[in-house]
Simulated assay, not measured.
Amino acid sequence: MNLIKLLIVSTALFVVSGCGYNSGVKSEAAASYLYFTGTAEGVDVSIDNVHAFTVTKTGIANQYRILPGKHLIVITRDSQVIVKRELLLGDGHEKEIYVP
């Protein structure tokens, strides 16, 4: 009788402990971030000669997501190039760009 109880309890423990295991690797998409300081509000930023966007807020709290890798950053104000810089960004890196 004790042997039957021991087998039932052991089987129940094996079944319950096996149900909670979740295998697999979870990874996030690769991303880097740019943020602008100085007099950057209202400037147009073009990354890799793609359609420009306008910076509305500056500082580290206002970051723009970008893929890691090598990028050409061109910043213009009133159709005049202010900053032209080539950057190499790694996964998870943040880069400050000062706009004079």
Results as ranks from 00 to 15, higher is better:
Ile97Asn: 04
Asp78Gln: 05
Ile4Lys: 08
Lys95Ile: 09
Lys95Leu: 14
Pro100Tyr: 15
Thr54Met: 10
Lys5Asn: 13
Gly92Lys: 03
Leu72Gly: 06
Val81Phe: 03
Ala30Val: 07
Ser23Gly: 15
Asp91Lys: 15
Gly38Glu: 00
Leu7Trp: 08
Ile4Arg: 12
Ser46Asn: 03
Gly59Thr: 03
Lys5Pro: 08
Asn49Tyr: 06
Lys70Cys: 02
Gln80Lys: 08
Phe14Asp: 13
Phe14Glu: 03
Gly24Ser: 03
Ser32Phe: 00
Arg77Gly: 03
Leu67Val: 09
Val43Leu: 00
Leu89Cys: 02
Gly20Met: 12
Val83Met: 02
Asp44Ser: 15
Ile60Asn: 12
Thr11Asn: 11
Val50Leu: 11
His71Asn: 02
Lys5Leu: 15
Tyr35Met: 00
Ala31Asp: 03
Cys19His: 14
Leu3Trp: 15
Thr39Gln: 06
Asp48Leu: 03
Ser17Cys: 12
Ala30Arg: 05
Leu72Met: 14
Lys57Asp: 06
Leu88Ala: 13
Leu72Asn: 09
Lys26Thr: 11
Ser46Gly: 05
Gln80Arg: 06
His71Cys: 03
Leu6Gln: 12
Val99Leu: 05
Val25Trp: 08
Val74Arg: 02
Thr39Ile: 09
Ile60Arg: 10
Ile82Gly: 06
Asn62Glu: 02
Ser79Ala: 05
Gln63Phe: 07
Pro100Lys: 10
Leu3Arg: 15
Gly38Lys: 01
Tyr98Thr: 15
Gly24Asp: 06
Ser46Asp: 02
Gly18Trp: 06
Gly24Cys: 03
Lys70Val: 03
Ile4Tyr: 11
Asn49Asp: 07
Gly92Arg: 04
Asp48Thr: 02
Gly20Ile: 11
Leu67Phe: 13
Leu6Met: 13
Leu3Ala: 10
Ile82Tyr: 04
Arg77Gln: 06
Val99Met: 02
Ile4Thr: 14
Ile75Arg: 01
Leu6Ser: 13
Gly90Asn: 12
His71Trp: 00
Tyr21Met: 14
Val25Ser: 12
Leu89Met: 09
Tyr35His: 06
Leu7His: 12
Leu3Tyr: 08
Tyr33Pro: 00
His71Ala: 00
Thr76Arg: 04
Pro68Asn: 04
